[in-house]
C-alpha cells in the first residue's frame, strides 16, 4: 500500500495541477486567467512526462566519460531516459508558441473592446 502511494503520488500531484489549469480554462471568465490556466495545464503535462523518464539511482543522460573511456560498457540503468526530455523540449516550445498566439489574440480583443471579461465581450459583440 505504502509502495503504491509512494510510487504514484507524484503523478497524482500532476493530475491535480492539470485539473486546476483545466478548470481555469473552462470555468474562468477572464481571458488572462484562461491563458494562465492553459499554462498550468500544459506545464503539469510536462512535469508528468519528465517524471516518466525518471529512474531511481540514475543520473543525467550525459555520458560522464565521453572522452578517453571508449570501450567501456554503458549501463542503461545508469542514465535516466532521455526521450521524454526531448519530447518535452519540443512541447515547451509548442506551449510557448500557443501562449504567444493566445496573448496576441488577447491583445487584439483588448484593443477592440477594452476589456478582457468574456461576458462583457460577448455583450459587445452582439
Amino acid at each position: 500500500m505504502v509502495d503504491f502511494i509512494v510510487g504514484k503520488y507524484n503523478y497524482w500531484i500532476y493530475i491535480v495541477l492539470m485539473m486546476i489549469g483545466f478548470y481555469a480554462m473552462i470555468g474562468k471568465k477572464n481571458l488572462i486567467k484562461k491563458i494562465i490556466g492553459m499554462n498550468i495545464f500544459q506545464t503539469a503535462i510536462i512535469l508528468f512526462y519528465v517524471s516518466i523518464g525518471c529512474k531511481k539511482g540514475a543520473t543525467l543522460p550525459i555520458l560522464g566519460h565521453a572522452h578517453g573511456h571508449a570501450g567501456q560498457a554503458i549501463q542503461t540503468s545508469a542514465y535516466i531516459n532521455p526521450l521524454p526530455h526531448v519530447l518535452m523540449l519540443t512541447a515547451i516550445v509548442v506551449m510557448v508558441a500557443t501562449l504567444g498566439v493566445a496573448l496576441a489574440i488577447g491583445i487584439m480583443i483588448y484593443l477592440k473592446y477594452n476589456t478582457l471579461e468574456e461576458d462583457e465581450i460577448l455583450k459587445a459583440v452582439k
Partner: peptide, 10 residues
Amino acid sequence: GWGDPDSPAS
C-alpha cells in the same frame, strides 16, 4: 511506479 528502472518506457 515512479522511477522504476524496469518500466517499459525505460
